[in-house]
Amino acid sequence: MKEKEDNENAHSSRRSFLRKMGIGAGAVTLAGIGATSLVKSNESGSQSGTTIKLLTTDGQLVEVDKNDIRPAKELLAEKKSEARAGLPNRKFAMVIDLARCKNARKCVEACQEGHKLPKDHEWMKLYLLQDDEHTAKYWFPRPCFHCDKPMCVSVCPVGATFKRQDGIVLVDNQRCIGCKFCMTGCPFSARVFNWKDPEVRLEEGQIYDPETNIPAVEGTVGKCVFCADNLRRNELPRCVTACPMGVIFFGDLMEDTVTNGNETFRFSKLMYDRAGYRFREELGTLPSVYYLPPTQRMFPVERGLDDADENIKGRYKSAGPR
């Protein structure tokens, strides 16, 4: 807690420091962000001709053009409003083919690595489900469902979690007060709480981005973000590309297309051919994640435990009765 305050205080002390150097308040930087990160060339590329001296966090004095300077605070605000708006004219959806999943956990690992999550935080979670003792077990990867009627967003008292125009639900962990109401609101246990300091810090020159939720902050909530940062670059979410079995398909419903990187299908045809469904449709949250039932499986369900370590095996002593 103390450290965080220091971090925030550093913000204002830096401001006064820059003032002392005779540089206007326009060149305010957040602590931990070097002058290089401030430099973002204008689209017009116009040069004012006047240069400004800035001190980088590693103590170097650099000279940059006045027009090239963007205050980090402004960049952060811009990034946040971009993240809140989402991509225009898109409606993202995921299709998970349960027939292909064998609990390889590559999606979980890629997600943890990509979002700098502690090992005990899983945004993507793998369940071993069995609806009834007379029905079959199956592996069930569960990302955030990014519902169209998201209960978590409805109950948030401060608007820290929000639904974007492209259907993605994100969390702004600089807004989150940690009341955990969203966690009880979500019927799919998709959210995780930072019970202690996750010890993730921003790298030099980075700004917090709700689209990656890096860095995680103690006392706030995190969850799967559909890799919104990747989507901005027309790249697939990390779990999709990491899956060796091509279990996870992703795409834009406006284009009626989903892909796992190798294969591309028409979403509507895939739903028709494979009897796609959504988990617990009756709850009415309208998830953006669809499942294909585990018909004609590629692997026996037991295969999922073959390579698993003891900790993972321990989780699945009994398949869930749902």
């Binding site: 401060v158 007060i177 940690g178 930072n194 103690e218």
Partner: peptide, 23 residues
Amino acid sequence: FCIGRLDRLYFLFIYPRIQSPIT
């Protein structure tokens, strides 16, 4: 005590959402 970020408690007043039962 239950709130993770007590330092942001005032957010309840500056960013209120009427839809939330907490509000």
